[in-house]
């Protein structure tokens, strides 16, 4: 291709209304492509450059900071109604680079790359010395708490047997020894009262997910488990899996049991 002289970008204000619109498109794209964990919300636009694209349109090169919300990516709650995870809950931030094309008034995400990091434990303890700190999902206390919570939930549930899909968050505090977990479950073709071998229970074709929060506290008299789950409406299985579309949730269920991933990884699907 011939060398094009004069290629340059234009400096734009980060709080420019159109840049904010581009950032919201980018965050929406991020949430639609997250394979697990929680939805993220825009916190700050760090940098922006606007490039003219030949023959038409402009490309926004954007750096944004996001924050984790309390809504899981499978939760149908609109992002606007999701709460930001507070510092006392050990907040997680995301750093993202996006290239967004604007052409004929339409925005198209051309490139995205995100990383996420939890706040440091030291920073959390500065604002809240007794607050729980994030721990890895493969910690034995986490695995034990999730199993105890899921067993308790299924024992109280006369209907469908729910299977673990993903551990989404895990925290602990030393005194009293307590573990707090958040995890995703899915309905199976087994009934909770009759299940003998959970491995033989299959997820329903029309996926029904639930999001659970549980805690396990070590007391003198033994363990105290509490669990609360919110079951979402059934999600019809798409006719064909589009690799560039929203998270193919059906594929996660077989591999995501007791994941050992760090608690704050921002995994996005294939790029366009």
């Amino acid at each position: 291709a011939p060398h094009i002289t004069g290629m340059s970008f234009k400096e734009v204000a980060c709080d420019d209304p159109e840049v904010e619109q581009v950032a919201l498109v980018a965050v929406d794209y991020l949430n639609q492509h997250l394979l697990h964990g929680f939805k993220h919300i825009l916190n700050q636009i760090d940098k922006v450059k606007m490039w003219n694209r030949r023959p038409f349109g402009v490309v926004y090169e954007l750096e944004i900071d996001t924050l984790e919300t309390t809504c899981h990516v499978l939760d149908p709650t609109p992002l606007a109604n999701c709460s930001v995870r507070q510092l006392t809950e050990h907040a997680v931030e995301g750093d993202c680079d996006f290239h967004v094309l604007k052409q004929d008034g339409q925005f198209t995400v051309m490139h995205s790359q995100c990383h996420s990091n939890p706040d440091s434990a030291e920073d959390v303890h500065k604002v809240c010395p007794s607050c729980a700190i994030l721990i890895p999902f493969n910690d034995t206390s986490v695995v034990h708490t999730v199993k105890a919570a899921l067993d308790a939930f299924n024992a109280q549930n006369n209907g469908t047997y729910f299977k673990l899909v993903e551990i989404s968050r895990a925290q602990n505090v030393p005194l009293p020894v307590s573990t707090f977990v958040e995890f995703v479950v899915a309905a199976t073709d087994c009934t909770a009262q009759e299940v003998t071998d959970p491995a033989k229970c299959n997820l329903l074709a029309e996926k029904q997910y639930g999001f659970c929060k549980a805690s396990l506290v070590q007391r003198l008299g033994g363990e105290e488990v509490s669990v609360a789950c919110k079951v979402f409406q059934k999600q019809p299985q798409p006719a064909s899996v589009n690799t560039a579309g929203p998270a193919p949730a059906g594929d996660q269920t077989e591999t995501a049991a007791l994941p050992a991933a760090p608690p704050a990884s921002l995994v996005v699907g294939p790029m366009v």
């Binding site: 204000a13 709080d15 904010e20 700050q44 760090d46 930001v84 931030e93 706040d119 920073d123």
Partner: peptide
Amino acid sequence: KVVQPGTVGAAGPVAPLCPGRVRHFKI
């Protein structure tokens, strides 16, 4: 007559274009 340089006809402070506002809190 001595005049402090920069006091006559000086432009006001230019607001930085970026980064933008923090919507929630910084980590």
